[in-house]
Write a protein that binds this DNA or RNA. Structure first.
Lengths: 139, 139
DNA sequence: ATGCACCCTGTAGCAACTACAGGGTCAAGG
DNA sequence: CCTTGACCCTGTAGTTGCTACAGGGTGCAT
C-alpha cells in the first residue's frame, strides 16, 4: 500500500476532536510546526502531525499548560535525555491539581452550608447574602 | 465620636486584601460605584464602599463570577425581593463546583497512575511520555 | 458556471485581572 | 522652601487558551 494522502486541516481537526482555529493557533504559538502547503495554499498534514497533535490534546485534557506541553514535547523529541525532568513536571502538576482539589472541596462545603440555611424568604433575611456580607453586617 | 475620615484607595486595598488596580477595575466594570474625589483627584471611600468590596471579595473567594456577583449585589440592594433567585444562583454554582471537583479527582488519579510508572530511565522508554502519546505509539 | 463546503489571513473578543508608562499630589525632613 | 519618596491618576497592553468573526480564495460536484 502506498502511504496515505496528506490531510487537510479539517481532516486533522476531525481526527483529533479539535477545532480548526485551535490548530492554526497551535501553529502560531509553535506547538505545531508550520506545514507544507498545497498549490492552493492549504495546510497539508501527515501522520506525524496527527501524532503530535494527539499528544498535545491529551496533555491539555490532563490539565498541563501549553508551556508545560512545550517542555514535554521538547523532551520527547530528544529521546536520549533523562526522564527525570518529565517526572518533575508531572509531579509538580499533580501537586498543583491536589491543591486545587483541596480548595474546591473546602469551597463546596462552604457553599453547601450557606445553601442549607436559606429559608427562601425575602432578601432582607437571606442567609446567603448574609454569609457573603462582612461578618454579621448590621445596618 | 465624629465619623471616620474617608479612606484612600490604598487604605481600602489594605483593608480588603485587594490590589489597588483591581479596585479601579471593579469601578470600571461597575461593581463599585464611581466615588467622590478629593481636591487632588484622589478617590475617597467610606464604610459603605468597604462593605460592598468585602462582599465582592468574599463572593470571588467562593468562586462566583463577576456577573454572578453583580446579580447578587442587585438582589441584596433590593431587600424586598424574594430570596429564591439568590438560592438558584448559589445552587447552580455549587453544581458547577461539584462537576469541576469530579473532573479534577479523575485527573489526579490519572496523573498518579502515570507518575507511578516512571522508572526514570531515558525518555526513550518513559511511561509518562508514552501515556501522553496516541495509544502505544510505535516508531 | 454556479453553488457550496471548505480553506486562508488578520483582528478582536472572552475572564479577571496585572503591569507598566508617564505623569500629578502630598506630607515629612533638611 | 524645597526636595524626596510614597502614594495617586489615566490609559494601554499583556496574560491564558482559545473562539468568533470579516472578508476573501479554493476545489469539487452538478
Amino acid at each position: 500500500m502506498a502511504h496515505a494522502p496528506p490531510m487537510t486541516i479539517g481532516d486533522l481537526a476531525a481526527a483529533t476532536n479539535t477545532r480548526v482555529e485551535t490548530i492554526r493557533w497551535y501553529e502560531k504559538v509553535k506547538l505545531l510546526p508550520a506545514t507544507e502547503r498545497s498549490a492552493g495554499n492549504y495546510r497539508l498534514y501527515g501522520p506525524e502531525h496527527l501524532r503530535r497533535l494527539s499528544f498535545i490534546r491529551r496533555g491539555r485534557d490532563l490539565g498541563f499548560t501549553v508551556d508545560q506541553i512545550r517542555e514535554l514535547l521538547a523532551m520527547a523529541d530528544d529521546r536520549d535525555r533523562s526522564c527525570a525532568e518529565v517526572d518533575t513536571i508531572a509531579r509538580a502538576h499533580l501537586a498543583q491539581v491536589e491543591r486545587k482539589l483541596a480548595d474546591l472541596t473546602r469551597l463546596a462545603h462552604e457553599l453547601r452550608d450557606v445553601i442549607g440555611q436559606c429559608g427562601c424568604g425575602s432578601v432582607a433575611d437571606c442567609r446567603i447574602i448574609e454569609a457573603l456580607s462582612p461578618h454579621g453586617d448590621p445596618s
